[in-house]
Write a protein that binds this DNA or RNA. Structure first.
Lengths: 255, 255
DNA sequence: ATTTACGCACACGATTACTGTTCTATCGAG
DNA sequence: CTCGATAGAACAGTAATCGTGTGCGTAAAT
């Protein structure tokens, strides 16, 4: 669901470009079944997102191996699992709590899940901010900072200062990797700094991590796994990883 | 232009409710020529904006005398004049400048006018933030704060701290009233505080004020007119007011 | 209890977004 | 410099979406 023809085509083009390194417009048109004009328009969009670079006749990938695909594509991937996880997190929050909510696609779903609740929320991404403006019962706090293009995650000294100036009941953190061995890791260094600030300002740490994240480790180490109080993950999470997390003192919830 | 049938109807309903204090659904349907169902849906929207309160059979106004109409309506009023003023302000800014950009509908147009420019901008409203996300050349700084419903103007200690932590070349300020006698005035006290912080952090102060603002004075005094370096206003600005401003040392530009 | 209004559900119309085709200007290779 | 191929603008047709109105069951106030 929520997989329209156009977003599916964008995803396939992104993958094809990334696999091939560089690829021609005609090939992409044949691959997707769309006209060359449509492919060109798609490439223009993806170039605007920084996914690839145009050249006459085709495009070459800008995503290095191991880098994340752009936000708009990740937001659609495994969205049902993300919604389930988000609903579980919403259930863990009590009315009236103050929450700092991390950036990322899963946390965006959390934002949507708590939009009707009576909470105080500081989201660390403008996507989540926009999802929560207009929520009548909810007190929305915007942190300062520089929004990273596409991701719209707020980072930098202003963000750190905003988070550090407050004390939250709960931090809901996304991650790029989470396991007992390497702890909670992120791709972006600035993001990692902000996450650390969120941990330092919060009494309880909830991490959201789809099953795939448990076997992955990213560049920036945010905190050891033992800093996390609760992990919400999918049913398909590998048992050895969840056992190791449990052994590290983390409460694991599969949904 | 940009006056669709539905926004026009919302405006007329808002005015009718405000004039009558309270009014029935049937009357509004007759007045607008729309069905009662449509009127009900409109009233729901306006109730969500805090313009009015529903009761069975009709609605009563929540706008006290002298208060502002909601953002969505003000954004449409005199939009051509606002665009002209915004273009003039954009012309006053040099590439590379750092700018703090106030909240309000005119400043939102300024945001749109500078979207393609190479500037560093901190907008004081989420409307302007959203207008500027994705602008490639522009460095966007988001201040912290609590967004006021509808207006989405950021206020509070987080906002003040964000503004105070930086020094800007130029502040572009909106206002509710501006004249030589009472200075720059605003409806909202929190807004006024943020505006003062912006003035304190900026070398040059540009005020945008449609002609009607020059003969108006609002509750909160932000600063004397002499603090303002440049006022950009409409051609139809009353000459006695502009003369007085000029006498106070303000450079007045009519466009 | 009765009447009135509310809002849900569906259907229709208008507007908008998307895709493909054609044509011309442009770019790059040799 | 010339030639061939691609890019992009303009238009048209189609799909999707939004706004609006009607009918009906339900809830609320008198």
């Amino acid at each position: 669901m929520a997989t329209t023809a156009s977003t599916d085509r964008l995803r396939r083009i992104t993958e094809a470009v990334r696999e091939a390194g560089s690829i021609g417009v005609a090939e992409l048109a044949a691959l997707t079944g769309a006209s060359e004009m449509t492919v060109r328009r798609d490439l223009e969009v993806l170039a605007g997102q920084g996914v690839l670079e145009r050249y006459r006749g085709g495009a070459r990938s800008l995503l290095l191996r191991g880098e994340e695909p752009p936000f708009t594509l990740r937001a659609q991937e495994g969205i049902v699992a993300k919604r389930r996880i988000a609903a579980e997190v919403a259930g863990l929050l009590a009315d009236g709590e103050s929450v700092v909510l991390d950036s990322g696609t899963t946390c965006l779903e959390v934002a949507r899940a708590v939009a009707g609740r009576r909470l105080t929320v500081m989201p660390l991404s403008l996507h989540a901010v926009n999802a929560l403006t207009g929520a009548p019962q909810l007190t929305l706090l915007v942190p300062g900072g520089r929004p990273r293009p596409g991701e719209l995650a707020l980072t930098g000294p202003l963000t750190q200062a905003s988070v550090a100036a407050l004390r939250f009941d709960t931090a809901v953190l996304g991650c790029c990797g989470l396991n007992a061995a390497h702890g909670l890791t992120a791709y972006d260094l600035d993001d990692a700094t902000v996450k650390r600030a969120a941990i330092a300002s919060s009494r309880r740490i909830i991490a959201v991590a789809e099953a795939t994240k448990l076997t992955r480790t990213a560049l920036a180490v945010v905190a050891p796994a033992s800093s996390v109080d609760v992990v919400v993950t999918g049913e398909d999470a590998p048992e050895e990883e969840t056992d190791a997390l449990t052994a590290a003192g983390v409460s694991v919830r599969r949904v």
